[in-house]
């Protein structure tokens, strides 16, 4: 009998703390699949954020360090600069990367740090029970915008990919989603490209992943996927924003 599907060895055999319908488990699994397939488990170092993915080190069987809120780019920089042969990635949510850690990610990008950033955008602060994040859509109801985000008072969703792409230090930036099996396959390809960018020493890469949060979007899993496709992608269009392989 031939095994055609199995749990990646890098994924620790345990139950998770993620809510039903959450996208984090899918992303962590994709990372684990790549680490297994490429045989890089012994040289990969991951950074866990503050937020829903704070316990990522409980799921990935690699060296991981948990960073203070918004600080993974700085921690990753410290590690990568002294261990350039390790593969270093930071795993961050939108509260971590696009709010409290905005300065950190901009300057890591501007320095062209040879690190892969995995940015999971679910448009809310999930771990603290669904408050407005900078990525929250206009009109979206959250715990701190009960009537929906009014941009006149609360500002507009931050498009991190487009913001960073104007910096000369960035090499590969793509936005993908988890809304369908096809999009999940594209997400895996984008993650592979991000790690390839680092292995080829081409510098800063960031993959933004639009991820469902059914609990704090107050939707079921199907509606969440539809919300990504129909609402989120209007504000956060999918696709490659910058790619070093396509220069010239």
């Amino acid at each position: 009998m031939q095994t055609i599907y199995e749990k990646p060895k890098t994924l620790i055999d345990t139950s998770t703390h993620f809510c039903p319908g959450c996208g984090h488990g899918i992303v962590l699994r994709l990372i684990a699949e790549i680490i297994d397939a490429w045989g890089i488990r012994g040289k990969t170092i991951g950074l866990a954020p503050v937020g829903c993915a704070v316990l990522a080190y409980n799921y990935l069987d690699i060296d991981m360090c948990e960073a203070a809120h918004g600080r993974p780019p700085a921690v990753a920089t410290g590690i990568k600069r002294v261990h350039p042969d390790n593969i270093v990635f930071a795993y961050q949510g939108d509260g971590d990367l696009a709010a409290i850690g905005t300065a950190e990610i901009i300057h890591a990008a501007n320095r062209g740090e040879n690190i892969t950033f995995i940015f999971v955008n679910n448009a809310v602060y999930g771990m603290t029970n669904g408050q407005m994040a900078p990525t929250t859509l206009p009109g979206q109801r959250t715990a701190t915008t009960p009537a929906g985000r009014d941009s006149a008072n609360y500002g507009y969703p931050i498009r991190i990919c487009e913001l960073l792409a104007v910096l000369d230090g960035t090499s590969y930036i793509e936005r993908v989603s988890l809304s369908s099996p096809e999009n999940i396959r594209k997400t895996k390809k984008a993650l592979e490209k991000g790690f390839t960018t680092q292995l080829e020493k081409k510098g800063f890469s960031l993959i933004e992943i639009l991820s469902p949060c059914p609990i704090y979007w107050r939707m079921d899993a199907n509606e969440s996927m539809k919300y990504i496709d129909e609402d989120m992608t209007r504000i956060f269009p999918l696709g490659v924003v910058k790619d070093w392989t396509q220069k010239n």
């Binding site: 509260g95 602060y125 771990m127 603290t128 029970n129 408050q131 715990a143 701190t144 915008t145 009960p146």
Partner: peptide, 13 residues
């Protein structure tokens, strides 16, 4: 927001 304070700002909002 920051746990375990968040309920204060949620209530006020």
């Amino acid at each position: 927001p920051v746990t375990p304070q968040t309920e204060i700002i949620e209530t006020l909002s």
